[in-house]
Design a protein around this nucleic acid. Structure first.
Lengths: 212, 212
DNA sequence: AATTCGATACCACATTCGGGCTATGGCGAC
DNA sequence: GTCGCCATAGCCCGAATGTGGTATCGAATT
């Protein structure tokens, strides 16, 4: 039963490394009856610390932040406060990123291009204990739900490919044979549905599997 | 002599497709004596139309927008209003993007991660007829100032490489010989200082030469 | 205990890529 | 009008890449 219209306002905590965007979110929230900004933070470590003091009702969190990133921050907070309700507020960084955020314990995912109404609706919904994922993101996740995901080793190798390294260099750096690197790449290509390393890097970057 | 502290407020126009960020910028500006929000727009076409009516003192403009992008919008506005003072407000998209914006007629470049003080200072400086580029961006531009830039054809080919196409496909698509594609790629590699296509795509994406 | 999966590794083969080098026609700058 | 740049194109060749198999080992799962 999500209320607060008559009762105590929803206490919201805003975590983002862009001061300007924080201002915007805060301006929207403060204009909204039934919402209250409990605090803000500009990076993960600060966020965890502030969360402990504030114990807000809902947290809005960016994923791209210097230092401890959003996913780690969500995990840390949720391990101490399993009831924490966290909404990821970010520019779209691919289905895999979104899925990782949800697995880390986020209750919602919202794009920075969202309208103020979306923001308020999502906050109320999540405060009420429900989850919210925008349809276009849900669709992307569903679209790739049947895909096999890359193993840790595969992701590591792909990250090195994305750093422009040749198979031989990757082999040397990881102390494995070049043939093994090629074997991993075969699997990576098959899982991503591509035929060469350049496509693999682009696809993986778009889907949020690696950073470039 | 930048004034307005005693006189008429600086009339500012905000163009960005993220409503939340617009709110933030507006909140900051409205809290600032001597500044006034003259209007806002969420895409290039809207921006040009609104500019004609408002003729603001300073325009804040994002580069990434659906439809007409920021660079085109700046060019269009500056062709009609050569005195227009435009500050690009965007996430860093590479030295080449930044340089293109400046060539299109922008007077300043500001990152979305900037503090409110940076925003206000830059607005006053640009309003006063001066230019402003943050040191880290100026450094990147300077660092690559001596590089030869890619020709239009080269950029087009690199864009196709970034789409995961093989030389043979690119040749077919552009109706040129595969040898020509390879010749262009040789030049591209030399200009970007890389040795293979994957590195070329990554470097070009980071520097804002192509979109991936 | 049996099976699956990830990581490792090797082989052989075809294709693609990248480097070096040359050349020509067009077009704009000086 | 000559110089330089761009787009075009070709040749050669070695290195890198991608593709098809097969196999072992250990950890996790059933």
């Amino acid at each position: 039963m999500p209320t607060s219209d008559a009762g105590r306002p929803i206490r919201i905590f805003v975590v983002d490394d862009h001061p300007m965007l924080r201002e915007g979110v805060i301006a929207v929230l403060e204009a909204e009856p039934g919402c209250e900004v409990a605090g803000q933070a500009s990076n993960g470590a600060e966020a965890v610390e502030a969360f402990r003091k504030l114990v807000p009702d809902v947290t809005l969190m960016d994923l791209q932040m210097p230092g401890m990133d959003g996913i780690e921050t969500i995990q840390t907070i949720r391990s101490e406060f399993p009831e924490a309700r966290i909404i990821v507020l970010t520019t779209y960084a691919g289905d895999v990123q979104a899925l990782r955020a949800l697995k880390a314990g986020a209750s919602g995912y919202l794009l920075k291009s969202a309208l103020r109404k979306d923001l308020i609706d999502t906050i109320r919904k999540v405060y009420g204990g429900r989850k919210h994922i925008p349809p276009e993101i849900a669709e992307q996740i569903a679209f790739h739900a049947a895909d096999e995901s890359l193993s840790g080793r595969e992701t590591g190798i792909l990250q090195l490919v994305a750093a422009g390294k040749a198979n031989k260099e990757i082999a040397r750096q990881l102390s494995i044979s070049e043939e093994t690197v090629k074997a991993h790449l075969k699997n990576i290509f098959a899982k991503l549905g591509v035929t060469d390393r350049t496509e693999a890097v682009i696809t993986a970057a778009r889907r949020g599997i690696i950073e470039i």
